[in-house]
């Protein structure tokens, strides 16, 4: 039991158990036949914060969101959202939540305005209230010009924005965003991020799933990393970043011939630089002090820098770091449950 618990490096408590957590999950499990979509998950989201749930496809992120938004019943464990139990009080719970899924759940044949108006009416606003709220949100999500058009004529980004607007109509206390920017171009993605921040400023609690470290970094204060239906790491964004080694640094010399000289220069200062195969060099896992030291060292040695780039670890690297660390802990790591081995 304790050995099993030991594989979850819970580095800092995300919330105090006495504190009013907007989302509380204990031992949550969901099985689809032999597949353990969720396999005993614990998680807390403090009121007014953004929790990023990070993981690859099939890690159980969507299953978690579907259980918390009452779309799927769990097979074991408990979950409480905004004070209401997902299994025992789903009707009360539904008054407090908004959901934006991976697939925009708007009616293709209706206009943007009609979609929002319908949801307002279903949330017991009167005709005038529903109209006002729809217009307000269309304005805020820059959809006023397209308000009268059927949503099937919308671009992917417009649809996603309408979907977010739809989730906001009832001013939910807890908002679930399931991969809100998957498939969006960078500009639209930034718009969505800005909206999510605005929602949090208004006091919503957000649980956001994503495959992108960058998105989690941009929006979330706490992270939970999922793999194969289990939490493999949890904690504050900074803590987790430190654990996986922070950002990596890429430098391209002004003169290609100086690459080796650069690597030697950095090696003398204890920094392991390696050629990146594209005429530059990479220094993995640097912190801010090391970054300053690198630039200073290259500057004093007279080696010209053509380009310098820092990069957050990718999700792959996060996984490698976390799972790599675990494998050094003897006996604490059970055999990996891959889908192939249980099928």
């Amino acid at each position: 039991m304790t050995a099993g618990f030991g594989i979850v490096p819970r580095m800092e408590p995300t919330t105090d158990s006495n504190n009013a957590a907007a989302v509380q999950v204990r031992g949550l499990a969901k099985y689809y036949g032999e597949t353990r979509a969720l396999d005993g998950v614990d998680l807390d989201v403090a009121e007014g914060t953004v929790m990023g749930v990070l993981g690859p496809n099939g890690a159980g992120k969507t299953t978690l969101v579907r259980i918390l938004s009452t779309l799927v019943r769990p097979d074991a464990g408990r979950a409480v959202v905004a004070g209401w139990d997902v299994e025992r009080q789903p009707y009360r719970l539904r008054h407090e939540i908004g959901l934006t899924g991976q697939y925009a759940s708007v009616d293709e044949l209706l206009s943007g305005y009609e979609n929002l108006y319908l949801i307002g009416r279903l949330l017991d606003l009167n005709a005038r209230g529903a109209r006002r709220r729809a217009e307000e949100l269309l304005e805020r999500f820059s959809l006023t010009d397209a308000a009268g058009r059927p949503t099937r004529t919308y671009s992917g980004g417009m649809r996603r924005r309408l979907d977010l607007a739809a989730s906001m109509i009832g001013r939910p206390r807890v908002l679930f965003l399931d991969e809100p920017t998957t498939g969006l171009d960078p500009r639209t993605r930034n718009e969505v991020w800005a909206e999510v921040r605005a929602m949090v400023d208004e006091g919503s609690t957000v649980l956001l799933t994503t495959q992108y470290m960058e998105e989690a970094e941009q929006l979330a204060s706490d992270l939970t990393v999922f793999d194969h239906g289990k939490v493999i790491a949890a904690g504050g964004v900074e803590t987790l970043k430190r654990q996986v080694g922070g950002q990596s640094l890429t430098i391209r010399p002004a003169q290609g011939a100086q690459l080796d000289a650069m690597i030697r220069c950095l090696a003398e200062r204890g920094l392991a630089a390696v050629p990146d195969g594209a005429g530059g060099l990479t220094v993995p896992a640097v912190d801010e002090a090391q970054l300053t030291a690198v630039v200073a060292a290259l500057g004093t040695s007279g080696l010209g820098i053509a380009a310098l780039e820092t990069r957050l670890p990718s999700l792959d690297e996060v996984f490698l770091a976390i799972t790599g660390e675990q494998s050094t802990v003897p006996a604490a790591v059970p055999a990996p449950t891959s889908l192939e081995s249980v099928a």
């Binding site: 039991m1 158990s17 009013a20 509380q24 204990r26 031992g27 499990a29 005993g40 614990d42 025992r88």
Partner: peptide
């Protein structure tokens, strides 16, 4: 696994 010593959930308001 579900009997882990996780803190008990706060009782629902109602």
């Amino acid at each position: 696994m579900t009997t882990l010593a996780a803190p008990a959930l706060a009782a629902p308001a109602v």
